[in-house]
Amino acid sequence: MAFPSWLDPFDAEPFVFFSKSHLWAMACIAVGLLLTYLFRNELRATSDRTRRNIRIYLALFMFGCEIVLQAWYIYGGVWSLRTSLPLELCSLSLLLSGVVLLTRSRLLHSALLFAGIAGALMAIVTPNLGYAYPHFRFIQFFTAHACIILALLYMTWVEQLRPTWRSVVASMVFVNVAAFVVYIMDVILDANYMFLRHKPDTASVLDLLGPYPVYILGEEILAMVMFSLMYGLFFAIPARVRSRMKRDRGTTF
Rank of each mutant, 00 (worst) to 15 (best):
Ala123Tyr: 02
Val182Gly: 05
Pro238Ile: 12
Ala45Gly: 14
Phe253Arg: 10
Pro134Asp: 09
Leu121Ile: 08
Leu38Arg: 13
Val181Asn: 05
Tyr215Asp: 01
Pro4Ile: 10
Val181Pro: 02
Ala236Thr: 01
Arg247Ile: 13
Arg82Leu: 01
Val173Phe: 07
Leu161Val: 05
Val99Leu: 15
Tyr154Pro: 04
Ser93Lys: 00
Tyr215Pro: 04
Leu217Val: 14
Val78Phe: 10
Tyr57Asp: 06
Met1Thr: 10
Lys199Ser: 02
Leu161Lys: 05
Gly250Phe: 03
Arg242Asn: 12
Leu209Val: 04
Met230Trp: 04
Gly119Gln: 10
Trp157Glu: 12
Asp8Ile: 03
Leu87Arg: 06
Val169Glu: 04
Leu196Gly: 04
Glu66Asp: 15
Val31Asn: 05
Glu13Asp: 14
Glu219Ile: 14
Ser80His: 04
Leu101Gly: 08
Ser204Gly: 02
Gly130Trp: 15
Val187Cys: 08
Ala59Gln: 11
Phe234Lys: 01
Tyr231Cys: 01
Tyr73Ile: 03
Ser97Trp: 10
Leu108Thr: 02
Ile149Lys: 09
Leu58Gln: 12
Val241Cys: 07
Ser228Cys: 03
Gly232His: 03
Phe235Trp: 12
Asp207Thr: 09
Ile139Gln: 13
Asp8Met: 02
Ala71Gln: 07
Glu66Trp: 01
Arg44Glu: 15
Arg49Met: 08
Ala132Phe: 05
Leu153Ser: 15
Ala236Lys: 13
Ala223Cys: 11
Ala151Trp: 12
Thr202Asn: 13
Leu85Pro: 02
Phe174Pro: 07
Phe17Asn: 11
Ile139Cys: 14
Glu220Gly: 05
Val99Gly: 09
Arg197Glu: 03
Thr164Ile: 00
Leu101Tyr: 06
Val78Gly: 09
Phe195Asn: 06
Phe17Pro: 06
Met1Asn: 01
Val169Gly: 07
Leu87His: 05
Ser5Val: 09
His135Glu: 05
Gly32Leu: 11
Phe3Met: 07
His145Gln: 02
Leu121Met: 08
Leu101Thr: 06
Phe234Met: 09
Phe10Gly: 00
Pro9Asn: 03
Asn53Pro: 00
Ser19Asn: 10
Lys20Glu: 12
Val99Cys: 14
Thr83Ser: 13
Met230Ser: 11
Cys28Glu: 04
Lys199Trp: 00
Val168Lys: 00
Ala144Gly: 01
Phe235Gly: 00
Arg137Leu: 11
Leu96His: 06
Leu101Asn: 03
Arg82Tyr: 02
Asp8Val: 05
Arg104Ser: 14
His135Phe: 08
Leu208Thr: 10
Ala27Asn: 00
Trp79Arg: 07
Leu229Val: 09
Arg247Thr: 12
Phe18Asn: 07
Leu113Asp: 00
Lys246Asp: 10
Tyr183Arg: 09
Ala203Val: 12
Trp157His: 05
Leu150Thr: 10
Asp248Ala: 13
Thr126Met: 13
Val168Gly: 01
Phe63Tyr: 15
Ala2Lys: 13
Gly76Val: 00
Cys28Val: 15
Leu94Arg: 02
Leu196Asn: 04
Ser19Gly: 15
Tyr154Thr: 07
Gly64Lys: 02
Leu196Tyr: 06
Ala223Ser: 14
Asp48Asn: 13
Leu196Gln: 08
Arg51Lys: 14
